[in-house]
Amino acid sequence: MSKNTNSTHTDAFYKEKHKEEMKYQVITFAMMIIFTIIAFGLVAGGFSKYFTIPVILVLAAVQFLFQLYYFMHMNQKGHEMPALMIYSGVFAAILTILALTTIVWW
């Protein structure tokens, strides 16, 4: 029954690996909660808007990457196509937002 022993070994290996992943995901969650509290705290604290707005936008961008790479597993192998697709989306998204916000200047 050497085949069965082998599969228990691989099972144990993957279980351990999944546990490791979960640990990082829980850390990610804690960081996102902290970032959220900082962002709300900055706004509630009434700091200058030229300081607050860039900082909360950066915090949002970092949370976006956390979700993508840890919660949506983009840090794992075989995610080249997903990365291409989501970043093409982000590229078009930035252009769209720039176009729509600058068009109202005049």
Binding site: M85, I86, S88, G89, V90, A92, T96, I97
Partner: peptide, 10 residues
């Protein structure tokens, strides 16, 4: 999801 990103951006 890439398409949804653009949709929400608009």
């Amino acid at each position: 999801l890439g398409g949804e990103t653009v949709l929400f951006a608009s």
